[in-house]
Structure formats: C-alpha cells, structure tokens
Design a protein around this nucleic acid. Structure first.
Lengths: 329, 329
DNA sequence: ATCGGTCACGTGACCGGTCACGTCTGGTGA
DNA sequence: TCACCAGACGTGACCGGTCACGTGACCGAT
C-alpha cells in the first residue's frame, strides 16, 4: 500500500514486470497501448507501474526508435527580445523541415554555457547559438557535433558561421546623424568581457572618417543597464546630442533615461539602436535602429545545420544591417 | 580519401573500430580521453572517427551515465515577453538546483504541441508549461512523466498546477476606472479556441457588480492583433473610454492604435493590460496592468516539479495579480 | 480426432554506448 | 632465466527499453 518510488534505485520495466507477475514485454505492450494484450492484464500492469512510480527512461526509449532531428539553440539571455526573435525565426525554419528546436539559456555565464554544451551532446543532433567560449573549447564540449555560430567574428573554424555585418548600417546611421547637425555622437557599447565590440569599431571608424570626436561608454544588456549607462554618460558629457548603442534593449533604456533627464528626443537628442526589434516601434518616440533581419538569421542558421548534417561545410553567411529610421533620430 | 558520412546508415563506434583495426572499447577510450591507451593508437582512432563522420549517439551515451535532471518548458509563443519572463524565472530556479531547462515553442498550434510532447518523453524528466490540449490527451502523450500546468483552470488532474488568480486585480482595475469616471469600459479577450477566458469572466462580473455595460472583443495575442481589435472595437463603439485586455501585448497594440485614432491616453481613454511586463514601462504612456509575478510563477513551477519527482503530489499553487498603475490609466 | 488460426504472452536479439575485468605483451629485478 | 608487474588492448555484461518472432492454449471447422 505504501509503494512510492524508492530513492536509490531506478525502477525499470522489469521491476514492474516482476511485481505484476508478467514478462517485461507485456509491460511494454501495456505501456505503449499496443494490441495483443488482455484488458485486465493491461490494467494490472498499469496499476503496478503507477504504484511503483515507474517512469520510462528517455534514453532507452530514444535508443530504439530514432526520433527526428533536433537542434539545440543556445542563447545568452531569453529576456533580450533580439534573441527570441532569432529563435522564432529558427523555430519557423526548423518547423518546415519537421525538425525540433530546443532552446537553452546560458544566462550569459561561461560556466553555464559549458555545462549546457556538455548536456547538449546527449540531447540534440546539432547546435546553433551565440557562444562566449573560444572555438577549441566549444569543439571539445560538443564532441564532433555540427555547430553553427552566430555573430562571431573569429573565422575559419570547422563550424558553420553567420556574420552580422552592420558596418554599412552604422556608417549610414552616423551619416544621418551628422547630416542632421549632430556633432557630439556617443556610443554605448556592451560591457561583455571588457573588450569592445565590432559595432564599436564601425562607429569609431565612421566617426573618424568625418573627423568627429568619439564618446564611449559601456552598458549592461538590459533596459536598466542602458538607463544607468546613459545617466553616467550624460553626466560626464552634457554636450552629447546623439547616441548609438550596441543594441535596441540598451537604446530603449538610454532613450528613456535621456528623456528623464530632460532631453527632448529627437529634437535635442537623437538615439539609434541596433537590431531593429519590433518593440522598438512601440516606445515613444519609435526607436530608429540598424535593423537586422532576425528571421533570416534564424532561417540561415537552420539551413547551415542542414548542410553540416549532410556532411558539407557551409560558407560563412553574412546578414547585413540596414538603417531603419523611425522617430528617435 | 572520400570518407564522408553515409546517408542511410548511422556510423557506430564499432564501424570506427573496424575501420581503425581496434576493438570498440579502444575507440571509446580514445573518444573519452581515458587513460590506458597508446598515444598513436588514440590519434589513429580519432582520425578515422573524424574521417567517417562519426558522432556518438546521445541516447546510448545517456543510457549509461545518468545525466542530471532536465525539465522541459513548453510555451506557446517565444515572442510574447510574458512567457519569456516566466521562462527566465524557471531557468533561475532550476539553476539553483543544478537542473537543466529546455524551452519548447509550440507556436500556439495543437499539432505542434502534441508532436512536442511526444518527443519530450525521450528528452526530459518532467514538463512544465501552458497547454491547450485536454488533460487526458496530455496524459497520454507524456506517459507518466511529471507535468506541471500553468494558468489552467481545470482542476483535479494528476498534474501539478499553478493558478493565475487575477480576480482581485481585475476587480481593482475596474474599480479604479469607474472611480475615475470611466463608464464605457470594454475588454479585449484572447481569440483562442473561441472560448472566453476567465479574465473576461472576472471583468464581466466586476462590471455587473457596478451595473456597468460590457463591451467585448477578441484579439490575436500580438501587438498587431491588439491594434486590429482596438480599431474594430472603437469603430463599433466610439463611446468607449477605457479598455482592459487579456494581456499586455494586446494592450500595447491597443493603446498604440487608440492613440493613432486620436484618443489621448489616459486623458480621454484609459488602458489597463494584464501581466505587468517590464516593457510595459517603456511605452508611452507607461502601461498600467494587472501584474503577475512571472519570476515567482517560474520558481513555483520548478518547485512543483521537485515535489512530483520526489513522488508527492503538490497542492495547487495560486499566484495573485495586483493592480499596477503606471500611467495609461 | 486433426488441423489451422487467433489470442495472449514470453524469449531472444538489438539499439550504441560504458564499465569491470581478463588477457597478452614487453620490460624489469632477482 | 624466470617470475612479476604494468601498460595496452580485447571480451563480456549491462544500461532500459522495443521489435520480430516463437510458443502454448483455446477455438471452430473439416
């Protein structure tokens, strides 16, 4: 009557069989609703299975009947809509091939990333994602599995790669700002690992071409992060009349903070983000941004997985960013 | 020299062994960096493995060494920030227990949901999520696995359950609107399966208590959906001076549309959403809402999984919604 | 009475790995 | 020279299921 699962040992199909007085095949039949089994026997088996707290092993089950391909999508932060938009794009593309996608959040944490990659090996057939670790580490942890990296600048690994090329977009953004009379254009980069992003490089080069001074700051990739960084930057450089940001999330926070500090946007202060998120059009004023086609990024990633699984190494794909003017600049 | 993976058959560890002229145990040693193997042999094995395109079976590997618990989180739509906030809460709680969480998006599609649940059985140890299917169907597809349902009104199944109780919050919202002189308060419900949500019931009862007329509309759960529904509703009932919505995403679209149609918010037209999303504070004006503690929902869900895995059935948990006034009402 | 067919169930093999142990080889000390 | 030992590798069992097939009981038909 007590029953209940025993802590130490796993309950197998054979335990159920023994307890119910049948062979394990009969248990399997009862569990999987196959025919060729007496109704009363089936019920008895089902009852003892429940009483014993039996749960089938996902591995043993998967070992026999091979499921469809499943792709792991590793993203640093579910709360950043950019990643969920990419994920949605990948989901959609995978759906067309009848693949499954499982999403993993690494919380922007290196240890989590490794732990995730480790378990990934026994969960999916291929991995797509944004990784912080160097290639060789990822290689070790994924153990030969197809891997597609998004937005990584390092080239020439065995992985599939998608480059996000926002150079023209950033140049256009700077041009737009300068042409509308802005002279003190800053940039809020990410604060990741303490090294500047390529986006910052694009900004600096564009500014240099025009002989404009640069103002650099870094922000945590959240709305609050953008707010704090904007407050600090405006405190230090009140003369600023425009800001570019590493991404839209930071931009939204920055714009919000700038308005809190009395700057009228876009009249006195212009904001241009990066990503072109949908929610950018809902803030006030609607956020201008260097837009990336997130859906396409996701779709390309899935496409590269297909090529890798088929055994060929795909070319590096490039997705270009384009300036999207909405209202904040 | 050609090598390459053969399409039809899976390459096993024994294929590699045969091709390298060793036993499969030696291959296993080489692959797993175990000792007791000659360096040159190891290299030779590694080379042939790569040449053959060998990839270890995730199932066979998992069968032997049992990995840590992993929980599947099934959500209808990654693009709705409410779900990603809940997911983030669950991720955080799972992280504390050293569990893994994999996120599945069902695209609000019944077939996808079933297909996902089916594969889930061989991927995770427990499932948490928002399901559209009736309990018995879910029961069949999950095959005895612990399941925690969020936001389902049907009670009394074998699953863990989390109820989102926004009744007081909705009542407070209606009270607030009525007290500030609104008389024509409508509600935009979801359009799912054609049946009204409990949130709508709460609205209707609150309105009835005050003897106010009700105005009902339905919206797809997206910003555009909210826009369209709001446009339709204002077309039909221009006298409306306030709107409640099924969730914040709809509310943001609705508010945006109301302003496009010339309504000043909150002066002439009040909007109150449901969820209390972070991005609600970034729109103009900041969105008032019946706030749900998404982080807590995620954490409770993981807690219930723990209880179910331990063999006990948790009580139904209830998370209350509270009125959060920000600016749109 | 014998045969064939169906039903309910059991037996063996297998999926693709890992682990414990056994075996073989070569080198070393007595 | 021989026993001993350690390193390198192979053999068998096993993980927990599913599937193809075999077996025995029971039934009606010939």
């Amino acid at each position: 009557m007590t029953g209940g699962p025993v802590p130490g040992k796993r309950i197998t199909i054979r335990d159920v069989a023994k307890s119910a007085g049948v062979s394990y095949q009969t248990v399997s039949r009862a569990l999987n609703d196959k025919g060729e089994i007496d109704t009363t026997t089936k019920q008895r088996v089902l009852d003892t299975a429940k009483r014993l707290g039996y749960r089938p092993s996902r591995f043993a089950r998967g070992l026999v009947r091979q499921d469809s391909t499943s792709v792991g999508l590793v993203i640093p932060n579910l709360l950043n809509p950019y990643f969920t938009e990419v994920a949605a794009g990948a989901l959609e593309a995978a759906r067309r091939r009848d693949w499954h996608v499982v999403v993993y959040d690494t919380a922007d944490d290196d240890a989590q990333e490794l732990s995730t990659l480790g378990m990934l090996g026994s969960q999916v057939d291929a991995v797509v994602g944004y990784f912080g670790q160097p290639d060789d580490v990822i290689d070790r942890y994924t153990g030969g599995m197809p891997v597609v990296q998004i937005g990584r600048e390092v080239v020439g690994s065995r992985f599939g790669q998608i480059r996000v090329d926002g150079e023209d977009g950033v140049r256009a953004a700077v041009a737009h700002l300068a042409d509308s009379g802005r002279r003190h254009i800053g940039m809020l980069d990410h604060d990741h690992h303490g090294k500047a992003s390529v986006r910052y490089t694009w900004y600096r080069e564009s500014m240099a071409e025009r002989g404009l001074p640069t103002y650099a700051g870094v922000a945590a990739q959240s709305i609050e992060g953008g707010q704090r960084a904007m407050a600090a930057m405006l405190g230090e450089h009140p003369e600023l009349d425009a800001i570019l940001t590493y991404n839209d999330v930071i931009a939204i926070g920055a714009m919000f903070q700038a308005r809190l500090l009395g700057r009228r946007v876009p009249a006195e202060f212009a904001v241009i983000g990066f990503d072109g998120l949908v929610i950018g059009s809902m803030v006030e004023p609607p956020l201008s941004s260097v837009r990336i086609d997130t859906r396409e990024v996701g779709a390309i990633a899935i496409g590269q997985v297909g090529q890798l699984l088929a055994g060929s190494k795909p070319d590096i794909a490039t997705v270009k960013g384009t300036l999207l003017l909405r209202g904040s600049a």
